[in-house]
Design a protein around this nucleic acid. Structure first.
Lengths: 150, 150
DNA sequence: CGGCAATAGTTTAATATTGAACCATCTTAA
DNA sequence: TTAAGATGGTTCAATATTAAACTATTGCCG
């Protein structure tokens, strides 16, 4: 049996850290969502706009990878952003499978105004930690997030 | 302008830590979900069963607070668990507004078998960190999660 | 007692989310 | 060149998720 004292204690620590990680993420998200909702955006919509804002036009596949969402989902998120004329789709010329999504003038304006405000709200949420603690948290999270990648 | 060097650097650190926190949570969730799906459970369904397993019968309001979901959502999650006869609802006698949700025999059996397996999968996900790092991550996450509570 | 505010759940509408099936397009290999 | 396989998107069915409107029940206060 692999679970003796030490193993068991380790399992508890792993579980405990996992639960706190999830709680922290959910609870920060929940506190941030109203700020985005007040601009009429969901978290995914904001994520998509933000990716386009900072990375430039992307095809839907790449957009999906950036915001960690499935292909089927991206179709809907982009649909909804397109309805509000915040983004536009352009079918690729050389390879007609690709659809490049880019910000419209309105979309750029919205995310350009919203992003700094949202970033400020994030800083407020994280302000319980010191600079050093933020870095520590970041580096630990990064390792957990990247497990079995790269 | 409030953003001078120091403030700006702090904002970047907060944002960076926030993004890594979210990525870690999403990516661990995503890697864990298939294990639950193979038992036919979603993350929320598992969360509900697990709460009932470790805390005993709960009314829907309390269940919602435990798994951080809205009231309307709990109705659906419990509906789906009830359809599969994993939980049962009992209307309160003294106060008929409350509905107590408890595990059925089948539900207890399922979560009793699944929980250890899931806990093992979680340990696997967290195993990139040492014991001390797990504790550090837990304590940092806890403080972020509890901000403006208690 | 009688009405009213508070509380627990449900329903509804909108969006999210995934996986699977499906269509269109491109690439490759026979 | 054509058939097969890979790739990008869409559609569909199921569940999730929330906020808001709504129902039922309780408690309180005048």
């Amino acid at each position: 049996m692999a679970t003796r004292h030490k193993g068991s204690s380790r399992e508890v620590k792993a579980l405990d850290a996992y639960i706190k990680l999830m709680r922290a993420a959910e609870s920060v998200s929940a506190r941030l969502a109203p700020g985005l909702a007040s601009a009429g955006l969901t978290v995914s919509q904001f994520g998509a706009l933000e990716a386009l804002y900072h990375l430039g036009p992307l095809c839907q596949r790449d957009l999906g990878r950036k915001i960690l969402k499935s292909g089927g989902n991206i179709t809907m998120v982009v649909d909804n952003l397109e309805k509000r004329e915040l983004v536009e789709r352009v079918r690729g010329e050389s390879d007609r499978r690709y659809i490049t999504v880019s910000l419209t003038k309105q979309g750029r304006k919205l995310i350009g105004e919203l992003f700094p405000r949202h970033a400020g709200a994030i800083r407020e949420e994280m302000c319980v930690l010191s600079d050093a603690e933020l870095e520590k948290l970041g580096s630990l999270c990064k390792r957990v997030g990247l497990k079995d990648k790269a």
